[in-house]
């Protein structure tokens, strides 16, 4: 099918974009990469009257590190994150997650800001942002504000973005040297959204006990979920198979997964346990700088 009619705007500055947003409000939609928006426009599930294309606005696509904070501009393409030398070194989970988004042609166009604004709970960037406690930079004519990811993504396709605001950047902490990490997912076909996905980071102390753990699971609830009681209880534990199995069991009980055309709730729970164990084992192998 073909998209419905709209008026097309190409502001070349944020100020000009805010003016258009102020003028058209709910009738306007921001387009960045368009890889989620144009499909639903083609299917006429979305019919915005005004399309505000932010691709001509400079300064929104940088990836840089400043004082232990990695800032990724909203217009950074998935493929730019996948191939970023800085991220491969400082936050290798992100290039790994990017590789699993759609297909090469989609990744060349789609953006991290667009994906997070869309607030799809199965999206790779939602999982990464929840795992790493990312901060979302939101700009409007009223100024710039920061939102914690847990406040920003509220539910399925529901974010804390007002009609006059634009997501302008995402801020991540880098992982520590020697910190292990893993991103595991299951989908029916390459390029599909994940049915269940698990991401983790693990820091060990010199005795081999767990010093710090992040563990996040997607596909089990309306947003990705940090398994915080496992994270807290893990500190000081030796990461042996018994511990991995107990963490996996907790993961299978998280959230309230639904049965749908992709998988039953029971299957999701089984996969949650399986992927959690796999992710923890993989991350432990990487601890201390192992490949």
């Amino acid at each position: 099918m073909k998209p419905a009619k709209f008026t097309y705007h190409t502001p070349d500055s944020l100020e000009a974009a805010f003016q258009l947003l102020g003028e058209y409000g709910d009738e306007a939609k921001i387009i960045a990469g368009g890889q989620s928006l144009i499909p639903v426009m083609n299917l006429r599930l979305a019919q915005p009257e005004h399309l505000i294309d932010i691709n001509a606005i400079n300064g929104l696509s940088q990836i840089r590190e400043e004082g232990d904070i990695i800032t990724i501009g909203a217009l950074s393409r998935h493929r730019e994150i996948e191939t970023s030398a800085l991220l491969k070194e400082r936050l290798p989970l992100l290039p790994e997650a990017a590789m699993r988004i759609g297909h090469l042609a989609i990744r060349n166009r789609g953006t991290i800001g667009g994906s997070l604004s869309n607030a799809d709970p199965a999206a790779e960037w939602s999982l990464m942002a929840f795992l790493m406690d990312a901060d979302i930079e939101i700009t409007s004519a009223r100024g710039t504000r920061m939102a914690d990811i847990t406040d920003f993504i509220q539910s399925v396709y529901t974010s804390d973005l007002s009609a006059d605001e634009i997501l302008t950047a995402v801020k991540f902490p880098p992982i520590a040297p020697g910190e292990g990490w893993a991103v595991c997912r299951i989908s029916r076909r390459a390029g599909d959204f994940a049915i269940v996905s698990v991401a983790t980071t693990i820091c060990l102390d010199t005795s081999g006990a767990i010093e710090n753990l992040r563990l996040c699971i997607g596909g089990m609830d309306v947003t990705p979920v940090r398994i915080s009681h496992v994270e807290h209880a893990a500190v000081g534990q030796m990461p042996n198979e018994a511990w991995i199995k107990s963490a996996a069991e907790v993961a299978s009980g998280i959230g309230s997964p639904e049965s749908d055309m992709h998988a039953s709730a029971e299957y999701r729970r089984e996969m949650a346990a399986h992927l959690t164990a796999e992710a923890l084992r993989e991350a432990l192998k990487r601890c201390g700088g192992g490949a």
């Binding site: 073909k2 097309y8 083609n42 294309d53 691709n55 042609a105 060349n108």
Partner: peptide, 26 residues
Amino acid sequence: EHGVCGACTVLVDGKPQRSCLTFAVQ
């Protein structure tokens, strides 16, 4: 026409992209 099949792939500035997921004006 919604980005799944890849038949419409063209190069934009040398990079593969879905021509059905881009407006000509862009």
